[in-house]
């Protein structure tokens, strides 16, 4: 039947919309997606900025690309909790009792997350601009930077999905995710230049995927080297997706067996 993929796409969009309806009635989400990144920008810029770069303006220019990565990374935690809750509450049983494409609840949820990441990124760029962050390149590079961030968020969200579909209690998914994501975000060069860290740590910082993505952001938004960090980002995004997506899909299949 040729109508099935089309219907599947429509069902996915309906479920994306359902995911986004949560923004309307759940103010906590706005806090997570919008207020939290703003608080981090303000804290880091004005508290640590001077200490790290001598002047908070220089620090903002250095750190905002990293903060974009951090905000996207933190936003990926939500998916696992959302999927876990839907399974636990029986919402997925309801969906599965309907004549819809089997994976549309999963694809719809992921698309809904991508819209959230975009929202978070745009808010950060605006707040950054208000504080004095200046993009040194053009519109094409800026759009490219946003696309890379979304791809990174996409790759990480499969990990979040896997976690949410695996842990027993949906709420603990975000706690586990936090334990993984927090060290990941801080052992990259998102907030602090690599050369201020001890040698053994620099070895890890240089292979950490968030460093590659942050370097790509700096290259695309501030000018400088793009090709190498972009290549490594692409490798990481592909590798993370290749590992987590099949595992998450398998868990989803098992749970909706």
């Amino acid at each position: 039947m040729t109508t099935v993929p089309v219907a599947g796409a429509r069902e996915t969009l309906t479920l994306t919309r359902r995911s986004l309806l949560h923004l309307k009635t759940n103010p906590e989400e706005i806090i997570e997606l919008v207020v939290q990144p703003i608080v981090i920008v303000l804290l880091f810029t004005f508290v640590f900025g001077g200490a790290i770069k001598g002047d908070w303006r220089d620090y903002l220019q250095f750190a905002l690309p990293g903060m974009l990565v951090q905000a996207t990374l933190f936003a990926t935690m939500r998916l696992g909790t959302a999927l876990g809750t839907d399974f636990k509450k029986g919402v997925y049983d309801r969906f599965r009792s309907l004549p819809i494409a089997r994976f549309s609840p999963l694809t719809g949820a992921i698309l809904g997350e991508m819209v959230r990441y975009l929202l978070s990124i745009v808010v950060l760029l605006i707040v950054g601009a208000l504080l004095g962050f200046r993009i040194q390149t053009g519109a094409v590079e800026t759009v490219a930077a946003v696309v890379v961030l979304l791809c990174f968020g996409f790759a990480m969200s499969w990990g979040s999905a896997l976690l949410g579909l695996t842990v027993r209690a949906a709420e603990s998914a975000s706690e586990f995710a936090f334990l993984i994501i927090l060290p990941l975000a801080f052992t990259g060069n998102l907030f602090v230049p690599t050369d201020t860290m001890p040698g053994w740590l620099q070895v890890w910082v240089n292979v950490n995927p968030v460093t590659s993505v942050a370097d790509t952001m700096r290259g695309l938004l501030l000018g400088g080297e793009v090709a190498r960090p972009l290549m490594w980002s692409a490798v990481w995004i592909a590798a993370l997706t290749a590992v987590f997506a099949p595992l998450a899909i398998r868990r989803f299949r098992q749970k909706s067996g």
């Binding site: 479920l15 309806l21 309307k24 029986g90 919402v91 309801r94 969906f95 009792s97």
Partner: peptide, 25 residues
């Protein structure tokens, strides 16, 4: 299907819950 194992989305409104199901159908 209604009962122990079919549920509604508690975060969105009652109206939106029904709207989503209608669109999926």
């Amino acid at each position: 299907l209604t009962g122990q194992y079919a549920a509604v989305d508690e975060i969105i409104t009652g109206f939106d819950n029904l709207l989503v199901i209608g669109r999926l159908l």
